[in-house]
Simulated assay, not measured.
Amino acid sequence: MTAPIEIVLGVVILLVLVPVAAAAVYRLVVVRRNSTSVLVRRAGEESWRYGAVRYSDTDVAFYRLGSVRFGADVRLDRRSLALGARRQPTGPELDVAEEGELIVPFSGTDPGGAVVEGELCLAPAKLTGMLAWVEACSTEQVRPRRPHR
């Protein structure tokens, strides 16, 4: 005996929608609670994406808020992160940037060794926090640990 098509469709919809909804809630609640809000534009892209950054001891993770992935969209090694000269938004950037926000180019390497470049748009206080985090990289993080003998 076969199941009615409504039951099969219901099960399929539940198997697809529940994980997507859980990922969306995770992004909007958990990630935003312990992160810094930013606008991100990767090199070669025209549009800005709303997102969040989270700092750890060894890396910075970028989360696009419109994404439904559980993990970070981009993760950059702290030792490789370089921030460029800040500038004021111009032209169409004024439509997405809040008053007083700055645009800062960045580059770094992801865990696979690929170079990731782009721009961040964030408030001066948030930029100060990011710069302090980058500059506070400890010597143990810069130099690999030697095995104990």
Score class of each variant (00 low, 15 high):
Val8Asn: 00
Val12Asp: 06
Leu14Gly: 15
Leu15Gln: 11
Val16Trp: 13
Pro19Glu: 09
Ala24Phe: 13
Val25Ala: 10
Tyr26Trp: 15
Tyr26Met: 06
Leu28Ile: 13
Leu28Cys: 05
Leu28Ser: 15
Val29Phe: 03
Val30Phe: 14
Val30Leu: 13
Ser35Asn: 05
Thr36Glu: 05
Val38Gly: 04
Leu39Pro: 06
Val40Gly: 07
Val40Gln: 15
Val40Lys: 10
Arg41His: 08
Glu46Gln: 09
Ser47Leu: 08
Trp48Arg: 02
Arg49Pro: 07
Val53Gly: 00
Tyr55Ile: 03
Ser56Pro: 05
Ser56Lys: 00
Asp57Met: 01
Thr58Ala: 02
Asp59Phe: 06
Asp59Thr: 05
Val60Glu: 01
Val60Pro: 01
Phe62Gly: 05
Phe62His: 10
Leu65Asn: 14
Gly66Trp: 11
Ser67Ala: 09
Val68Ala: 05
Ala72Gly: 06
Asp73Asn: 15
Val74Arg: 07
Leu76Met: 03
Arg78Asp: 00
Arg78Tyr: 01
Leu83Ser: 08
Gly84Met: 11
Gly84Pro: 10
Ala85Arg: 13
Arg86Tyr: 06
Arg87Ala: 10
Pro89Ser: 15
Pro92Gln: 08
Glu93Lys: 05
Val96Leu: 12
Val96Gly: 10
Val96Tyr: 14
Ala97Phe: 05
Gly100Ser: 07
Glu101Lys: 07
Phe106Tyr: 06
Asp110Gln: 04
Pro111Trp: 12
Val115Glu: 10
Val115Arg: 06
Val115Gly: 01
Val116Lys: 01
Glu117His: 07
Gly118Val: 04
Gly118Pro: 02
Leu122Met: 14
Leu122Val: 12
Leu127Trp: 12
Leu131Cys: 11
Leu131Lys: 12
Trp133Thr: 04
Trp133Val: 05
Trp133Glu: 00
Glu135Leu: 15
Pro144Thr: 13
Arg145Asp: 03
Arg145Val: 02
Pro147Asn: 02
His148Asp: 14
Arg149Phe: 01
